[in-house]
Structures are given as C-alpha cells and as structure tokens.
Amino acid sequence: MKNRENAKGYWRDNIKYVIILLAIWFAVSYGAGILLKDELNQIKIGGFKLGFWFAQQGSMYVFVILIFVYVRLMNKLDKKYGYDE
C-alpha cells in the first residue's frame, strides 16, 4: 500500500513540475515573442531587436534550459521517492 502511495506522490510531483516548466516556456515564447514584442523591440542586442530575438531564438534557448532544469528536478524527485538506482 505504501508503494502505491509513493508512486502517486511521485506522479503528482512530476506533473506539477511539467506544468510549471511548460507555463514558463509558454510565457517566454508567447509573451515575449508575441505579446510584448513591440516593447521589447525598443531594445537591440547585436543589431537585432529583442522582440524578434525572443520570437526566433530565445524561446528555443529557454526550452533547452528547461530540459536541463527538468532533468535536475527529476533526479531530485527520484532520490526523494527512492526510485534512483
């Protein structure tokens, strides 16, 4: 019975992490790339407008960083629930 509760807690925490990380990615890609584009275009980096940069490359960089964050969080979660080997 304890193993089943352990698995439910593990899955609940996993889904919580996924939802939070996807919300961050959505906020960066949609918010910075589309909604805040005009405000961010006032700033230039390397000759490119910041809104354009977020729309074209920034959301991809954030996604890759979030993958590494997810791996780290899952490793901690595995140790917490005893699923690490």
Score class of each variant (00 low, 15 high):
1 M>R: 06
1 M>D: 03
2 K>Y: 01
2 K>A: 02
3 N>G: 04
4 R>M: 04
4 R>G: 00
5 E>A: 01
6 N>I: 04
6 N>G: 04
7 A>I: 01
10 Y>W: 02
10 Y>Q: 01
12 R>P: 01
14 N>Y: 03
15 I>K: 05
16 K>F: 02
17 Y>W: 07
18 V>E: 14
19 I>L: 11
20 I>H: 00
20 I>N: 01
22 L>D: 11
22 L>V: 06
22 L>A: 14
22 L>P: 01
23 A>E: 04
23 A>M: 07
23 A>D: 02
24 I>K: 03
25 W>C: 05
26 F>R: 08
28 V>D: 08
28 V>S: 08
29 S>G: 14
31 G>R: 14
32 A>Q: 10
32 A>I: 08
33 G>K: 10
34 I>V: 14
34 I>F: 13
35 L>T: 15
35 L>I: 15
35 L>E: 13
36 L>D: 05
36 L>C: 11
36 L>M: 15
37 K>Y: 07
38 D>I: 07
38 D>V: 10
39 E>Y: 05
40 L>Q: 08
40 L>D: 05
42 Q>V: 12
42 Q>T: 14
42 Q>A: 14
43 I>P: 00
43 I>N: 06
43 I>H: 04
43 I>Y: 10
44 K>P: 01
45 I>W: 08
46 G>R: 09
47 G>N: 12
47 G>R: 09
47 G>Q: 11
48 F>E: 15
48 F>D: 13
48 F>A: 15
49 K>G: 11
49 K>N: 11
51 G>Q: 07
51 G>D: 07
51 G>I: 03
51 G>L: 05
51 G>M: 06
52 F>V: 11
52 F>P: 00
52 F>Y: 12
54 F>C: 07
55 A>C: 00
55 A>I: 00
55 A>L: 07
55 A>P: 00
57 Q>L: 12
57 Q>G: 08
57 Q>I: 11
59 S>P: 00
59 S>E: 02
60 M>N: 10
60 M>L: 13
61 Y>R: 03
61 Y>I: 14
62 V>P: 00
64 V>H: 05
64 V>L: 14
66 L>S: 08
66 L>M: 13
66 L>A: 10
67 I>M: 12
68 F>N: 13
68 F>K: 09
68 F>P: 10
68 F>M: 14
69 V>C: 08
69 V>G: 07
69 V>S: 06
69 V>D: 06
70 Y>S: 13
70 Y>A: 14
71 V>G: 07
71 V>E: 10
72 R>N: 09
72 R>M: 07
73 L>S: 07
74 M>V: 10
74 M>N: 11
75 N>G: 12
75 N>F: 05
76 K>E: 13
77 L>R: 13
78 D>S: 12
80 K>A: 05
80 K>C: 02
80 K>V: 02
81 Y>R: 01
82 G>K: 01
83 Y>L: 11
83 Y>Q: 04
83 Y>G: 06
83 Y>N: 09
83 Y>R: 09
84 D>K: 05
84 D>H: 05
84 D>R: 04
84 D>A: 09
84 D>Q: 10
84 D>Y: 02
